[in-house]
Design a protein around this nucleic acid. Structure first.
Length: 317
DNA sequence: GTCTGTCTCTTCTGATGGGG
DNA sequence: CCCCATCAGAAGAGACAGAC
C-alpha cells in the first residue's frame, strides 16, 4: 500500500471511475447520465475531466454513438475490477479464502462461452482455488430467467442483456463474428468481399426454431437474405460442416481464433457490419451478499480480459 | 480546542448551439 | 432530429481565519 500515489489519487475522484464504467457500458453520454441519475451536462463534464486527467479522448462520436478509444478499451477491465474490489471491501460481511475453499459453483453458459471462457477460467481456478469445482449448465435466452430465479445456476453468461428485475448484469464484451471456410473446398480470398459472402451457402448458430439463426435474423433486419443450409445450437457442428462441405460457418471471433485452425479452416472478419447483442454476465440480487460468488465473478472478468479482444481478429489461413 | 462566519472551489442543473 | 459540448448560475462542501 505504501507505493500508492496518494497525491495523484486525490485529484482523481472515484466517481469519475464510476462515470467511465457507465460510459463503457452504455456507449452514450445521455444513457450513462440516466444510469447514474445525473444530468447529461454533468456526465459530459465528468467525461471532459477524465479526458484531461488521462490525456486521451476516451470516447469519440461516430454517428449517433460514442466509440471508445484504444486507451478506453484498455482501461475498461482494470477499472471494472477496481470498482468491484472497492465494492466488495465495503460490503463484504464474510470471508472467502480461495486457496482453502471447497465449493461447487454452477455456471449457466451459452455454447459460445462454454468453449471460450471455461478453458481460461479453469486455468485460473486450478492455480488460485484448487478446491473449487465448476458445474457448467447450458442456457438459452429463453431458459436463463427461470434457471437463475430457481437457483439452478449461480451466474449466467451469454447473450442476454436484460433479465427480470431482481438481477444485476453487466456487459462483458461486444460480440463480433468471423467467417470460417475450408480453402480446399471453397475458393475465396482473405478477406472475402460482401458479395462473395452473400453468394455463398452458410452454417449458422440457432437456439430457436428459426433456421436463419441469429446471423440470418440480424441480416434480415437489414433487408438481406442469407442462404442458410445448416443451423445448429452449438459451434462445433458448424465448424465441422465447414471443414467437410462448401459452406461458410459464421461464428464469434473468439471461437474462430481458437478453433478454426484445429479444423483446418481459414477465417476472416464478417464483411458486413452487423450489430449483435453484447455478451453479458447476470446474477441474482441475493448473490451479491455471497463473497465466494463475488470472488468467482471477478475471476470471470479477469479470464475474459485475458482473452484477446475480438477486434484483434485478422484474416488467417 | 471548538465554534462560527466567510470565501473559494467543485459539481450540479437547465438552456442553448452545433455536428452528424 | 438526436445527441454531445459548453455556458451561466445555484447549491453544497471544504478551507481558513477570527472569536471564545
Amino acid at each position: 500500500m505504501d507505493n500508492i500515489d496518494h497525491f495523484n489519487l486525490r485529484s482523481f475522484d472515484l466517481n469519475l471511475m464510476i462515470a467511465f464504467d457507465a460510459m463503457m457500458q452504455e456507449m452514450s453520454v445521455t444513457k450513462a447520465a440516466e444510469k447514474l441519475r445525473i444530468g447529461q451536462s454533468a456526465m459530459s463534464h465528468n467525461l471532459n475531466t477524465l479526458r484531461m486527467l488521462l490525456a486521451d479522448d476516451l470516447f469519440v462520436r461516430v454517428g449517433q454513438k460514442m466509440q471508445p478509444t484504444a486507451k478506453a478499451r484498455a482501461l475498461a477491465g482494470p477499472v471494472r475490477t477496481a470498482l468491484s474490489q472497492a465494492q466488495n471491501a465495503l460490503h463484504a460481511t464474510d470471508s472467502f479464502d480461495p486457496q482453502s475453499a471447497q465449493r461447487v459453483f454452477r455456471l449457466g453458459v451459452t455454447g459460445e462461452m462454454d468453449m471460450i471462457l471455461l478453458p481460461v477460467l479453469m486455468q485460473h481456478l486450478q492455480q488460485q482455488a484448487p478446491g473449487i469445482k465448476i458445474l457448467s449448465r447450458t442456457i438459452t435466452s429463453e431458459t436463463v430467467d427461470g434457471m437463475i430465479n430457481g437457483g439452478e445456476i449461480d451466474l449466467a453468461i451469454g447473450c442476454k442483456s436484460q433479465l427480470n428485475t431482481g438481477h444485476f448484469g453487466e456487459v462483458l464484451f461486444n460480440s463480433e463474428v468471423a467467417c470460417c471456410f475450408n480453402p480446399d473446398i471453397l475458393d475465396l480470398p482473405l478477406p472475402m468481399s460482401r458479395a462473395q459472402y452473400l453468394a455463398s451457402r452458410h452454417a449458422v448458430l440457432s437456439q430457436t426454431e428459426n433456421v436463419a439463426g441469429c446471423v440470418g435474423v440480424a441480416l434480415q433486419g437489414m433487408g438481406i437474405e442469407l442462404d442458410v443450409v445448416l443451423a445448429a445450437p452449438d459451434f462445433m457442428p458448424l465448424l465441422a460442416a465447414a471443414r467437410n462441405s462448401a459452406v461458410i460457418a459464421t461464428v464469434p471471433c473468439r471461437i474462430a481464433n481458437q478453433y478454426a485452425p484445429l479444423f483446418g479452416l481459414s477465417y476472416c472478419p464478417m464483411p458486413i457490419d452487423v450489430a449483435f447483442p453484447p455478451v453479458t454476465m447476470n446474477w441474482a440480487v441475493w448473490t451479491d451478499k455471497d463473497v465466494g460468488l463475488i470472488w468467482l465473478r471477478d475471476q470471470i472478468r479477469a479470464a475474459i480480459n485475458a482473452i484477446a479482444p475480438d477486434r484483434e481478429l485478422q484474416a488467417a489461413e
